[in-house]
């Protein structure tokens, strides 16, 4: 299997959640059908338990010499149809290929009459991938609930829906989460979220900002990549971190004004 040697599949679960949250909104703003993970976690667990039971049965019968290829095909169809599939695809995307890889491996091992050990190896990988998916969705559900609270606050203040928040707003919300996570004692996750916010959010808007205020962009880059990470590395107090984030918020407000100006000047495609 020629997989990309990029770190994306080796990122922490925390990072997976960042990516998953970004993918929660489908094309052009409509909400994903799985936009209430908390309400469906039990369903996902049941679906995964059923799939695991099926896999166990298939592997046991294969070891007993039975033909099971059709049942593996049926398992793949089940995976394509369950709600858990869409939830992983939407909210825990970096884990999604692992499940397909394991299903493909199981199918190949069975089709090629592989040794029992090979088949069992893919069984373990598949079950591990499925349960990692459940774990990721549980954490994503927590984050989704937090975001819903934030969105409700935003709606009262600005009339903005969660899926339509401007990038600057998302950055500011994430920075608050960084402080909250750090205050709760999880500096590693706070660092991950900070870095991910820079890569996934800030880098996407800096192009327009450079033309209008390059010094501001440089300043914010320093905040993202030096000031805040160093504070956390030096185990500064959460209040000190929060104070720096407050300073960043003022800069981000100016960035929003500049982006609004840029949007007015931007040409159309056609």
């Amino acid at each position: 299997m020629n997989r990309l040697p990029r770190p994306i599949l080796h990122t922490t679960l925390f990072v997976c959640l960042c990516l998953g949250a970004a993918g929660a909104v489908q094309a052009h703003g409509e909400l994903s059908p799985v936009d209430d993970l908390t309400a469906h976690i039990g369903d996902y667990e049941n679906e995964v338990a059923d799939m695991r039971s099926t896999v166990d049965s298939i592997v046991a019968d294969y070891a007993a010499g039975e033909a099971v290829a059709d049942r593996v095909d049926a398992l793949v169809e089940t995976w394509e149809e369950v709600e858990f599939h869409e939830a992983v695809e939407t909210h825990a995307m970096p884990l999604y290929p692992s499940i397909w890889i394991a299903l493909g491996g199981l199918r190949e091992a069975v089709d090629e009459s592989g040794a029992d050990a090979d088949v069992q190896q893919w069984q373990r990988r598949l079950e591990q991938a499925l349960y990692e998916g459940v774990g990721a969705l549980k954490l994503a559900a927590t984050q989704q609930d937090d975001e819903a609270d934030t969105a409700e606050t935003a709606a009262h203040g600005h009339g903005a829906a969660a899926d339509e928040r401007p990038t600057i707003t998302i950055i500011k919300d994430n920075l608050q989460s960084v402080v909250k996570t750090y205050r709760e004692g999880d500096a590693e996750s706070a660092q991950s979220l900070l870095h991910q916010t820079y890569i996934e959010r800030f880098e996407g808007i800096e192009g327009d900002l450079i033309e209008r205020d390059a010094d501001l962009v440089t300043d914010l880059e320093k905040d993202f990549n030096a000031t805040l990470p160093l504070l956390m590395e030096k185990q500064a107090s959460a209040d000190d971190l929060a104070a720096e984030v407050e300073k960043m918020n003022a800069k981000l407000d100016r960035a929003q004004t500049l982006l609004d100006d840029a949007a007015k000047d931007q040409s159309s495609v056609f």
């Binding site: 599949l9 692992s98 397909w100 890889i101 299903l103």
Partner: peptide, 24 residues
């Protein structure tokens, strides 16, 4: 009727390869 999936390029590449390996 456009359906878009957005993600980092490397993650999507892994997904496409994995989907293909699984026959879909």
């Amino acid at each position: 009727e456009l359906s878009i999936r957005r993600a980092p390029s490397a993650a999507l590449a892994n997904t496409l390869v994995a989907e293909a390996k699984a026959g879909v």
